[in-house]
């Protein structure tokens, strides 16, 4: 489904909603689109009679809402205590350099997006990154290069 059709599904569900439906509505939109697009926020603003700045204000308060379309491969890097001790800060820097994006951004080719998360509950595997829900344990600079290279190669083929 294209973005517009996906959005129409959500719109239908919240036809008669008031401002109190804002957060569940935003969650549903993100569930469908993967992020909150500008167009979506404009539509929500018209529908719920809330200003766009208010909606953005609410959405930007919560970590769960994203404003950029996620990449085909969504990389989450754990910055929890255990991973921190095992050097996740350096891992993040490597990722940023390798992908040329900052956290919450998506690469120009739409392939990768990067997200910093607090803990993924896999401290024994620290430092850990999660690519499209697949865990990679005990990563270092070399391993990260390999993971990304592999994805790029697969995509080319």
């Amino acid at each position: 489904m294209i973005e517009k059709e996906k959005f129409a599904v959500v719109k239908n569900k919240y036809k008669n909603a008031g401002p109190d439906a804002l957060i569940p509505l935003l969650q549903d939109i993100q569930g469908e689109l993967g992020y909150l697009s500008r167009e979506a926020i404009t539509e929500v603003s018209k529908g719920l009679k809330l200003s766009e700045s208010k909606i953005y204000g609410v959405a930007s308060f919560y970590n769960q809402f994203k404003f950029n379309p996620p990449g085909k491969y969504h990389i989450q890097i754990c910055r929890g205590t255990a991973c921190h001790i095992k050097g996740s800060k350096t891992i993040l820097e490597h990722l940023e350099r390798e992908l040329k994006i900052a956290p919450d951004q998506t690469t120009k080719d739409g392939l990768f997006s990067l997200e910093v998360v607090s803990c993924v509950g896999a401290c024994s595997l620290a430092p850990v990154i999660v690519v499209n829900n697949k865990f990679h344990a005990d990563v270092d600079k070399k391993k990260i290069k390999k993971i990304i290279k592999k994805i790029r190669k697969e995509e080319l083929e």
Binding site: E52, S53, Y56, G57, F61
Partner: peptide, 28 residues
């Protein structure tokens, strides 16, 4: 009742801005 600006982000990052932290000439 223009609502061009509001508090965005959270904690130490909180600031007053328009939607998507655009310049206000792009807001309402």
């Amino acid at each position: 009742q223009v609502g061009a600006i509001d508090f965005v982000n959270r904690g130490a990052d909180t600031c007053v801005a328009s939607a998507f932290e655009d310049s206000i000439n792009l807001s309402t």
